[in-house]
């Protein structure tokens, strides 16, 4: 685990993990707003033409970004500039296999390390295809963050955890981003099961859109991931979204950071 992840998850409070799509709206200003509002970990989405695990909001954000001409080089420039402005906030790139591997995994891993990226989430490289990206990232000191889902059974879980770093991302619904919310009981059960199997922090995402939804999840998890709700704000306010992003981030951060105190 990178030092930034270790420091973030060592805090005695759950983390807000915030996702936005790179190149959609004023990304630098929105990233600053996320940090100012209290986000603990940033997931920067790499736009792809065919985001088949994403719901309508993030699909549209991908296409808006690409329509503006966002390139992979632009993404790494955004990441590197973020790292200069925010030396302590963990930064994760999230996206799809083809843009990550097209120049070879070593190239991608080296660019991540150079830009100060702490972790990578690749939606469509399961543990079975780890060779495509995992070894190069680990060699470059970048964490490969794995996804566990409601369909990940006990037999598979060790394979999913093998080679995983940073934190474990629990996809709480079998589905796509930004759609329905999982039942809290199923999240409680899953997080307990995952935490029994790994020392990695467990963050829960998919379908979490409000402080009210985030709070009970934060009671049991080490982090809560919110994405589509930020994307909706950016879609609505365009280049002037940063103040709205910051206000919304603060409401989420307050709910998540305080969740375990209320419980105690």
């Amino acid at each position: 685990m990178t030092d930034r992840f270790a420091a973030t998850f060592a805090k005695p409070r759950p983390a807000l993990v915030a996702f936005i799509t790179g190149g959609d709206g004023n990304t630098a200003a929105n990233l600053d707003a996320l940090v100012a509002g209290g986000a603990d970990v940033i997931e920067l989405g790499m736009p792809f033409t065919d985001p088949m695990a994403d719901g309508p909001a993030i699909q549209a954000a991908n296409l808006r970004s690409l329509a503006k001409g966002t390139t992979t080089a632009d993404l790494f420039a955004i990441a590197a500039a973020f790292r200069r402005r925010h030396p302590d906030t963990p930064l994760v790139l999230m996206g799809y296999a083809n843009p990550m591997t097209i120049r070879g995994p070593e190239w991608f891993a080296a660019e991540c390390a150079k830009a100060g990226v702490d972790g990578v989430i690749c939606v469509d490289i399961p543990s079975e295809e780890d060779a495509e990206l995992g070894p190069a990232l680990r060699a470059a000191g970048v964490d490969l963050i794995r996804l566990a889902t409601p369909t990940t059974d006990a037999a598979r879980l060790p394979d999913v955890l093998n080679g995983a770093g940073g934190f474990l991302y629990y996809v709480s619904v079998a589905g796509i981003t930004g759609q329905q919310q999982a039942a809290q009981a199923s999240i409680d059960e899953a997080v307990a099961r995952l935490k029994a199997a790994t020392d990695l922090p467990v963050a829960v995402g998919f379908g979490v859109r409000t402080p009210e939804q985030a709070s009970p999840i934060a009671k049991v998890a080490d982090g809560v991931v919110v994405g589509s709700a930020f994307i909706d704000i950016i879609a609505q306010h365009g280049d002037a979204a940063a103040p709205y992003v910051e206000t919304f981030t603060r409401s989420l951060a307050d709910a998540i950071h305080g969740a375990k105190e209320i419980a105690a």
């Binding site: 296999a97 469509d124 490289i125 295809e129 996804l147 369909t151 990940t152 598979r156 999913v160």
Partner: peptide, 10 residues
């Protein structure tokens, strides 16, 4: 190969 989301893998 099998380049799918974890949800589909099982």
């Amino acid at each position: 190969g099998r380049y799918v989301a974890e949800t589909l893998m099982p």
